[in-house]
């Protein structure tokens, strides 16, 4: 019989993967459209580009700086809950 991961654990892992993959995919896309050039040399038509760039960099900072802690904290919460249920 095929064992399934408990829904909550799967969700924790999936959400982490989605955030990482989104950041990875966006960084490749932005390299090609060169939206991020506006950051270094903004002009009068740079407002939308700067907004998108800022949003991307916030996502990247979240993934690089906070996602590991966020993931570990969620795992710990999940594990505590499982222990409570099983105990």
């Amino acid at each position: 019989m095929k064992t399934r991961l408990p829904t909550t654990l799967r969700r924790i892992i999936l959400e982490l993967l989605v955030v990482i993959l989104l950041q990875f995919a966006l960084s490749h896309v932005l390299t090609h459209v060169r939206l991020l050039d506006h950051l270094l040399s903004p002009g009068s038509e740079s407002n939308i580009a700067l907004g998108v760039t800022t949003a991307f960099l916030l996502l990247r900072m979240f993934v690089m700086l906070f996602a590991p802690g966020w993931f570990i904290a969620r795992l710990w919460l999940w594990w505590s809950r499982q222990k409570q249920i099983n105990g």
């Binding site: 960084s27 932005l30 390299t31 060169r34 991020l36 950051l39 270094l40 040399s41 760039t53 960099l57």
Partner: peptide, 10 residues
């Protein structure tokens, strides 16, 4: 390797 925020000059 390219650094996306740099562009040609960066």
């Amino acid at each position: 390797r390219t650094y996306a925020t740099g562009g040609p000059l960066g």
